[in-house]
């Protein structure tokens, strides 16, 4: 875990494209929010592996969003139930339910429906938001953060030493 956090810090501070990091966070959000054993998550994992998104950011994001999913579980269930029971959508759901493929996606599960809807709705806004935050962090906060007493103290910690080691290794490489 320390290594992952250190790697994340390194990535944030490096020249890596911010979109690769924010896309990793967004895919992590989908995987973290929705039940792991769902058909769409195979697609998410395939995209994470094939697209050059940052894996450290993805792993950390997955841990973070899984925790958040536990908190938001009742909200996802209520939203999913609301959508699945909405009178106007019954025709759509019934036709999907008649198809073997769509039943395999478990779309009729309240939690899958609620969490996936939230993930899809938040995907693009979060992508833009994370992008801006990373740029802001790099442009404004990085120099300031480095000078803070907290960062000075942090430099003395094992975490930072790990980060340094990794940085030098990367540099050597």
């Amino acid at each position: 875990m320390l290594k992952s956090i250190a790697k994340l810090l390194k990535v944030l501070n490096s020249e890596t494209d911010p979109a690769q990091i924010s896309l990793a966070f967004c895919f992590a959000m989908v995987l973290g929010f929705t039940p792991f054993l769902s058909l769409h998550n195979i697609v998410v994992i395939l995209l994470v592996l094939v697209l050059r998104v940052n894996l450290s950011a993805f792993i950390l994001g997955f841990v973070f969003f899984s925790g958040m999913a536990y908190l938001f579980d009742p909200l996802f269930h209520a939203l999913g139930q609301g959508l699945l029971k909405a009178e106007s959508l019954q025709g759509l759901w019934s036709s999907l339910y008649a198809g073997f493929f769509w039943r395999m996606t478990r779309f009729n599960n309240t939690l899958v429906m609620g969490s996936l809807t939230v993930s899809i709705v938040l995907f693009v806004p979060f992508l833009v938001l994370f992008n801006r935050l990373i740029l802001k962090y790099r442009g404004t906060f990085l120099a300031w953060v480095r000078k803070t007493r907290f960062m000075q103290a942090l430099r003395a910690t094992r975490l930072f030493q790990t980060y340094e080691t990794l940085s030098s290794l990367e540099g050597d490489g």
Partner: peptide, 15 residues
């Protein structure tokens, strides 16, 4: 109320 992380399967009208 379903257990956390499980949800409830809603069954739709079948033929």
């Amino acid at each position: 109320k379903p257990p956390r992380g499980k949800g409830v399967d809603i069954h739709f009208r079948k033929q």
